[in-house]
Design a protein around this nucleic acid. Structure first.
Lengths: 196, 196
DNA sequence: GTCTATAGGGGGATAGAC
DNA sequence: GTCTATCCCCCTATAGAC
């Protein structure tokens, strides 16, 4: 019974926490081990004792981010609401437009093709798309969206609106484009529900 | 009348051409001067004779890309077509899903906040959004889209679908998501046109 | 486990010959 | 105008003491 108390060796978690923050602020390539060490207060030895290197540390951080993002995403799908209302709630989720999506912002890095890092990221988006597809189907069956829409196309389109909105906000250095794109999507869902 | 013949000093243009290709393939930060020289066949001296440095060369290349992108974009707005058909033509434009948008792929780099580079990029997107907004208005006046939609919101949303589709394609390492998002957008425009 | 010291490689730019 | 040689700094990782 050695580790009765969780081994409160904070350095490992400090490294992960710093990496989570830096992945969001700078992305993978622009995040140097030196910066991680500075921000976490750990030394070189701690990093390479607990992890194989920058990539391994990033993978560990991404898994934690993945858990947090799924939990936040799931909160939008309150069973007390109609499927259409759930879709609108997803669109209305507060977002840090200028920082970008914590995963989506890595889309254009070389790391996105890394065999270890890619599955962590792509599987989250698959989860979003599957969940949204089910919700679109449910809205159709409830008579709130036209049955002529293909659920998967609609779900991927909604996911793209969020990701593209983030990109436009970064490009214009303003929170407005993401908000405008989301409002456009809400209007369209609302309009389609009227004609159904 | 010195330069009767255009001064066929190819090195300057060779550098620009290599930079245009590398900005698309790797982005700004991941594109090193060494790689540019290798790919263009020029030496260090040519780069720093014709340009102040990497950033200045990139700015020159981005301006050329901007001209090309505007020309390609404008082709979608054939006056012989209805405004709605023009919007559908824009959505149907062939795109290199896995390489990403030549400008949009820079959205998450630090360079996007650069005072020289940012205006070149953001002004193109402003142009896209303004043009699409006008076209949405025209479609509404033609009775092909409901007047309840706000034209700017719809235009920004369409732009976001393209940018987000690129991101999803990079994430899933497949051309499919961009195509699926575009199909979703086309279906929705078509559906909305029926109920108008 | 955690630290500091150090190494090897590449990034971006300058110097100066031709 | 174009080239090669060189510089300095930072990135990532390893060595080895404590």
């Amino acid at each position: 019974m050695k580790q009765h108390q969780p081994p409160k060796s904070n350095k490992r978690q400090d490294l992960i926490d710093a990496t989570k923050a830096l992945l969001w602020e700078r992305g993978f390539e622009a995040m140097s081990p030196k910066t991680i060490l500075k921000q976490s207060g750990a030394g070189q030895g701690s990093l390479y004792h607990h992890f194989e290197g920058k990539r391994d540390l990033a993978a560990t951080a991404l898994v934690e981010i993945d858990v947090e993002m799924r939990a936040a995403f799931d909160k939008n799908f309150n069973p007390a609401l109609s499927a259409l209302q759930q879709l609108l709630a997803y669109l209305e989720t507060p977002r840090e437009a200028l920082k970008g999506c914590r995963f989506g912002r890595l889309a254009n890095e070389q790391a996105i093709a890394d065999p270890v890092l890619n599955p962590i990221i792509s599987q989250l988006f698959t989860y979003l798309e599957v969940t949204l597809t089910k919700t679109v189907k449910a809205a159709q069956q409830a008579g709130d969206l036209p049955k002529s829409l293909k659920p998967k196309q609609t779900a991927v389109m909604l996911t793209a609106i969020i990701q593209g909105g983030y990109a436009l906000s970064r490009i214009h250095q303003s929170a407005e484009p993401l908000q405008t794109a989301v409002e456009g999507a809400k209007s369209i869902l609302t309009e389609l529900s009227k004609s159904t």
